[in-house]
Design a binder for these strands. Structure first.
Lengths: 169, 169
DNA sequence: GATCACATGTAATCCGTTACATGATTGT
DNA sequence: ACAATCATGTAACGGATTACATGTGATC
């Protein structure tokens, strides 16, 4: 149940509304896990039911701000330290790259070049994000962007090599 | 529908039984996509229904060997070249690493060290696999292991830095 | 007054995991 | 005989995506 713990982690940093969680998900955890409001709201209701979060305040536009409880903190800690990690990863992007190797040379080169451009954009975005983060006060999830940037950098280098290899025949 | 195209990609390399596909999934595509026989068999039935694969032969133990059809090749090519890629990634491992930053220092260091050991093992396995692949005749999916190795290497370096940073306070 | 961003929910469908269930062949 | 591996399937459940649906507050 990763969604549950991702939400607890975000709330541990700071209380938030469901809506705010949806955006922070993308900003902070986007390169590792993804969720939209239609998953987040029902899960918040379940977390409330289980006493792992509480409603810390209600604001404008019927908004409810949720905060993690001590029980929630214990559940997060337990998951991080006691549970057996699931090491599986899922990346449709990388699956595509692998399957491109079944295509004829010219089609493969063209597709690899499009992928390379896309990863280049990703790298640029992450570099910009890191500069913003370097200015503001230190954010607990700042290292996430750094890891994302480095992974994207090796992916770009791999694509470059694949392009060179596919062209050079 | 990534599963469908992953199967088509594996069959494009070589015809196989559902059982063989399940093992090749792990070997060749494991670091990008994961599937077990309970997904593979029903999907093969659907692919057969849609004319994207055919039964190329039946062998011992009621086994059926499937091969990709021209229609299947066209569907794979279309997906790779014409469809909008889904760039989302999902890694419970990296999510964990991010959430570890919510833990107190000593617990965080211990957990990071366990993660570091696990990535170290992964790196060793991939290096061994690459040596095996370097011997045999060139396999279309050999570059996959190389990318996996490089990503794991930057992850190991990142963990090392996190450990140093967490200790040094 | 219109539009945009904030804000919350549900329903239908699809995909993935885990568990159940069975049988054939090979090697010891 | 027995165990391991090969081989194929189904069922139940849970998680994720997409679509539907509605309302509030701020800004132009």
């Amino acid at each position: 149940m990763s969604l549950r713990h991702a939400i607890l982690g975000l709330l541990e940093v700071q209380p938030a509304t469901g809506y705010a969680l949806a955006s922070r998900f993308e900003q902070s955890l986007g390169s590792a896990w993804h969720a939209t409001h239609s998953q987040i709201y029902p899960e918040l209701a379940r977390l409330l039911d289980d006493g792992l979060v509480r409603v810390a305040g209600e604001g404008a536009r019927r908004s409810k701000t949720y905060a993690i409880t001590d029980e929630g903190r214990a559940a997060l800690r337990d998951w991080l330290l006691e549970s057996e990690p699931n090491r599986a990863t899922r990346s449709e992007t990388i699956l595509r790259w692998f399957l491109l190797q079944t295509l004829p040379r010219d089609q493969r080169v063209a597709a690899l070049e499009r992928e390379r451009a896309s990863v280049g954009e990703q790298v640029t975005e992450l570099q910009a994000l890191l500069e913003v983060l370097a200015d503001g006060d230190p954010h607990p999830f700042a290292p996430n962007a750094e890891l994302g940037l480095r992974i994207n950098t090796v992916m770009a280098a791999w694509l470059d090599e694949q392009i060179t290899a596919a062209r050079g025949r």
